[in-house]
Every structure is written in structure tokens, then in C-alpha cells.
Design a protein around this nucleic acid. Structure first.
Length: 507
RNA sequence: GGCCCCAUCGUCUAGAGGCCUAGGACGGCAGAUUCUCAUUCUGCAGACCGGGAUUCGAAUUCCCGUGGGGUCACCA
């Protein structure tokens, strides 16, 4: 049974990167009739933002990335908020603290030696750690915890926990190679020298991400982890954790990072628009964003660029799901490894693409123009721009075909239809313009048949008579020098409204 | 800096040794259609990071550079 998950931390506005990851979680689970789970990673009490959890959950719904399980829809592996799972983490930290390192042979295990356990208590102060780091940096060494407290006897450490602040650290063995593989990246191999003794339990009793993610993914029976490439370097820690616990690890799929438009760094607030809310407010369609996100890292086999999420799900080629995943250590002589083997299947780009707002905007336009039906567009507009519902039902309906090829985002509705809501304002007519407006007014008044042909005839006469161009008539009737086709939209607006707009302008 | 990942038009990419004079899309430019603006259509400019090696033949394989990105917290 496939189970995927997204684990956002509620620290701000919902991020496009979260949607990008959730898209894969959702589609993959969907494709293999599995479950897609949302778990809130709120272990950082300092950065926690009120309402952020609601915002991510809402954002996922907006995109149609409905979870099978979430804080709003709990099933039997909950709770789905890490802050409500503290006992579980405590329990698992205790397991590691009391478990001997598997690489130490039974006869050599010392009960009172912290260094012989999978995890150990650490009492180092922030000051000492900072000092240590600075010293290492000065010597051009990689900043790393020096296992100072691992040298403590277990009995002394236990005593000190009674009245001192402490953290619990992962005891990473020296001289090991940690191997694992990733469906996208392939085989990855790092030496344990490059893996720090991660803090697993903070002084405030909250777990760090690394502990919580492994424990939860295991307890929630997650089979496939889609996450950003930025997590690749910390995966060895997780592999070690799975190994120490004696669990099978899930399959990793580290998705390519999406870079800022200028290619400087991963998608962030500073360089562009990383917040889901921005796109929502600007009138982008969720389907178009999903399409763009999928298309940026994946290519449709037939080269299509416009496709919906169902088609993405259908065509996304991922074989090797499931399969036995083993985590074991080979401590024979020279080859000492912590190995974890899964499968491998490259199915999307391995590069980090840049976020191209122009292309997304183009896609949005395609959705408005050809993907969405007129009825769908009508509801989209009404949702986005409630004032649109004030227009007579027929008016809006007739306007849609005119609007379709001219709207790039839903937001464009407002400027395009301004004169349907209020007479044009904000400019003064010159003498001749006034004269033309007067002419137009009387000609319109005398019109027996109010339709686009008769309107056009009148306008053509005026164009001829005054030797002017179309934009001027636009200005007089709509307040803007360009916009929707004039005869058609004036027909829809109606004789009465058109005349009252003109009247307003002339007085 | 250590470790990891990556490298085709400005951007997203196709390309899995000869089909490549390197294809498409966005963006740009020019033109056609048109009652404005759009849409639509046509055309133009535009790339294999560098150097070696393998081969009859390399964008495609291998090495070395270079460049870019990620990551090195009691943040996720």
C-alpha cells in the first residue's frame, strides 16, 4: 500500500514549493490507489505562526490536492500534528538512549559508557558550541560537534539530567560509509565523518525534525518520501536512525529544487513570488499553476504542455514501487557500511529549473482561453470578483466570449469591464471630443434597432466625418482607449446604460 | 571551505553514438488578419561551458577543469 505525505511547518504563508511537493505526493498516491497524508510539523515553537496551519490546509484544498488523512481528517495513525505526539518521541528517544550501538560486539559493550549507545545526553552550553564552531572555522575545519559529552559516563549523565538543561544527540559512528539510493538522484554515499551528531531532542523537550520525521514516517507507514533536494544532505542521518531502530526505510525521491527567476537560490520571497496567496490574489487558476509546476520538471511524452492533473497522473512513468527495502550494516573487516537499498527510476528532470512567471502567465491565459468552458469561466469570475454577480445574468453570460481571449488572469476582468459598473471618469474632453460625443449621443438616441451592426454603422460614420481613429470612440464610451470590441460590448451594455454613461461624461 | 547534486537557445526543455544544418514551448523581433486591444496565423534572431580521451563518427560515453545550485543549527 502506497502512502505518501507532505509535512509542512506552519511558519508563514503557504509556499509554492509545498504545493509542488504535494502535487507529487497526491498524484503518486492517486496513481497507485494509495493514501496521501498531511502532517503538520510544528516542533519549532519559536517560528510557529498563528493561522499558518489553516492556511496550508486551505491552499491544498484550493489546488484540489485533497489529502486522505490530515489534522482535519484524522484516521488511525494520528495525531497529525507533531506537537501532539510528544510522548511518542520521548518514548523513541528513550529506546535509542538505552540501545547499544549495533556495531559494537556484544562482549565489548560497556553499560556505563555513553559512547556505546545509539544516543546520548549532551550538556554543552550554547556558548561552548559557538566557541567550538568558531575554533573549527578558524582552523578551516568543518563545524561539527566534538562528541564531548559522549565521553561522559552514563551514570554521571543521568545524574546531571536531574538539574541541568540537556539535549539528546544521535551517536554517529566513526569510520563508516552510509549508502542509500534515491529514485531520482541514484546511489548516494557519504562517510560518517561528514555526518554530525544531530540533536534529536531539544532542551524544551520537543524533538528536532530529524527524529520526528523518521519516527512519524515509520509509525504512519509512509512508503515513499517526495521532498525537495535540499533534504538530500540530511538523509544519511535518517538512514542511521532507521538502522538504529531496526526499521525498513521508505523510498526516497528528492525532487529538483525550483530556483528563483534569476537563478539565484531556491524559490523565495526575496526574489519573486513564492507565496500561494500572491497567485490567488492575482487571479491565477489553480489548475494552471499545477500544470506549470508539473511541466517545469516533467515532459509529456507527446510533448504536450497543456495537460490536467489526471493526465499527469496517467502518463507519469514510475515503475518500481514497493519492493523490499532493507537497512543493514555490514561490519565485516574493511567494508563497514550502513547500506540501504531501494530501486531506481529516473522519471523527471534532474536539474533545478527556474520559476518562469512569464510562462506560468501564458499557461494561465491558455486555461482561461481554451481549457475552461464559458460556464466554468463565469463561476471563476464570480468567485474571484463578487461584484460581477451584480450584473444581470444575461449581461455576464454574453460578455464571457468577448472576455475569453482578452483575459490573462481573472484580475483582468475588472479593467476590461469597468464601464459596465460605472460611467467613465478621470479625464476631461477637449472641444472636438465633446462635439463627437454629442454627435454620438444623438445618433445613438435615434437608433431604432440597438445591435452591434447598427452601432458599428454609426461609429463608422463618425470615424469618417471627423477623420478620427477608433481609440477615441473607445475613450468616449468606455473611458479607456482600448478594450473589448466596442459594438458588441455596447450592445450588451444596452442603449439605456450607454446613453447614461455618455450623459454623465457630457455633464 | 568540506560534503552532495547538476551542466543544450535569455527561460523550460527534446535529444539515450550516425536520423542534428540540434527540434519544440515561453519570452523577443517582424509581418498578415482586424472597428481598438487581444486572439489566431506566418516568418526571423537565438544554445550543445572549456580541454583532453574513446570511436570511422560524440550534444550523447569516460577523465580533468570551470561554472551553477544545495547543505553544513537545540529551523524545518
Amino acid at each position: 500500500m502506497v502512502r505518501t505525505r507532505i509535512a509542512p511547518s506552519p511558519t508563514g504563508q503557504p509556499h509554492i514549493g509545498t504545493v509542488y511537493q504535494a502535487l507529487f505526493d497526491y498524484v503518486f498516491a492517486q496513481k497507485y490507489k494509495g493514501d496521501f497524508i498531511v502532517r503538520i510539523e510544528d516542533t519549532d515553537r519559536v517560528r510557529l505562526v498563528e493561522g499558518a496551519e489553516e492556511a496550508v490546509l486551505d491552499a491544498l484544498d484550493w489546488f484540489g490536492l485533497y489529502p486522505d488523512e490530515s489534522p482535519r481528517k484524522p484516521k488511525d495513525v494520528g495525531p497529525y500534528r507533531q506537537s501532539e505526539r510528544l510522548d511518542t518521541y520521548k518514548e523513541h528517544v528513550d529506546i535509542l538512549i538505552n540501545k547499544f550501538l549495533p556495531m559494537i560486539p556484544e562482549g565489548k559493550r560497556q553499560v556505563d559508557n555513553q559512547a556505546h549507545y545509539c544516543a546520548y545526553y549532551c550538556f554543552c552550553t550554547k556558548e561552548r558550541l559557538t566557541q567550538l564552531r568558531e575554533e573549527q572555522q578558524r582552523l578551516k575545519q568543518v563545524p561539527r560537534y566534538d562528541k564531548h559529552c559522549a565521553g561522559l559516563s552514563r551514570s554521571e549523565a543521568l545524574e546531571r539530567t536531574a538539574n541541568e538543561d540537556y539535549v539528546v544527540r544521535l551517536n554517529v559512528p566513526t569510520d563508516y560509509v552510509i549508502k542509500f539510493d534515491d529514485w531520482l538522484v541514484g546511489d548516494v554515499e557519504v562517510t560518517s565523518k561528514d555526518v554530525d551528531d544531530q540533536v534529536l531532542m531539544k532542551a524544551d523537550g520537543f524533538p528536532t525534525y530529524h527524529l520526528a520525521v523518521v519516527v512519524d514516517d515509520n509509525l504512519m507507514k509512509i512508503t515513499h518520501i517526495f521532498r525537495g533536494r535540499e533534504w538530500l544532505p540530511s538523509t544519511p542521518k535518517h538512514i542511521i536512525l532507521y538502522y538504529y531502530f531496526g526499521w525498513h526505510r521508505p523510498i526516497y525521491i528528492h525532487l529538483p529544487l525550483i530556483l528563483n527567476m534569476d537563478g539565484k537560490g531556491k524559490l523565495s520571497k526575496r526574489h519573486g513570488h513564492s507565496s500561494v496567496n500572491y497567485y490567488r490574489e492575482e487571479g491565477y487558476l489553480p489548475d494552471a499553476i499545477i500544470n506549470y509546476l508539473a511541466n517545469i520538471v516533467w515532459n509529456h511524452p507527446e510533448g504536450k504542455e497543456i495537460f490536467d492533473i489526471e493526465e499527469f497522473e496517467d502518463k507519469l512513468h514510475i515503475n518500481q514501487i514497493g519492493g523490499a527495502v532493507t537497512v543493514y550494516a555490514n561490519t565485516n573487516e574493511k567494508v563497514k557500511e550502513i547500506v540501504s537499498k531501494g530501486g531506481q527510476e529516473a522519471f523527471i528532470t534532474s536539474q533545478a529549473p527556474r520559476f518562469d512567471l512569464d510562462k506560468l502567465t501564458w499557461m494561465n491565459q491558455r486555461y482561461i482561453q481554451e481549457v475552461k468552458s464559458e460556464a466554468e469561466l463565469e463561476t471563476l469570475i464570480k468567485d474571484f470578483f463578487p461584484k460581477a454577480s451584480d450584473l444581470p445574468e444575461e449581461t455576464l453570460k454574453n460578455l464571457i466570449p468577448l472576455l475569453k481571449s482578452r483575459m490573462v488572469t481573472l484580475k483582468d476582468f475588472e479593467s476590461l469591464t469597468k464601464f459596465f459598473f460605472a460611467p467613465p471618469t478621470g479625464f476631461v474632453l477637449t472641444e472636438t471630443e465633446r462635439e463627437i460625443a454629442n454627435d454620438l449621443q444623438s445618433a445613438f438616441e435615434g437608433l431604432a434597432e440597438w445591435n452591434k451592426d447598427s452601432i458599428l454603422t454609426i461609429m463608422k460614420e463618425l470615424l469618417e466625418k471627423y477623420k478620427i481613429r477608433m481609440p477615441l470612440l473607445y475613450k468616449i464610451t468606455t473611458g479607456s482607449e482600448r478594450g473589448l470590441p466596442l459594438p458588441e460590448s455596447l450592445e450588451i451594455l444596452g442603449k439605456e446604460k450607454t446613453l447614461s454613461n455618455l450623459n454623465y461624461l457630457l455633464n
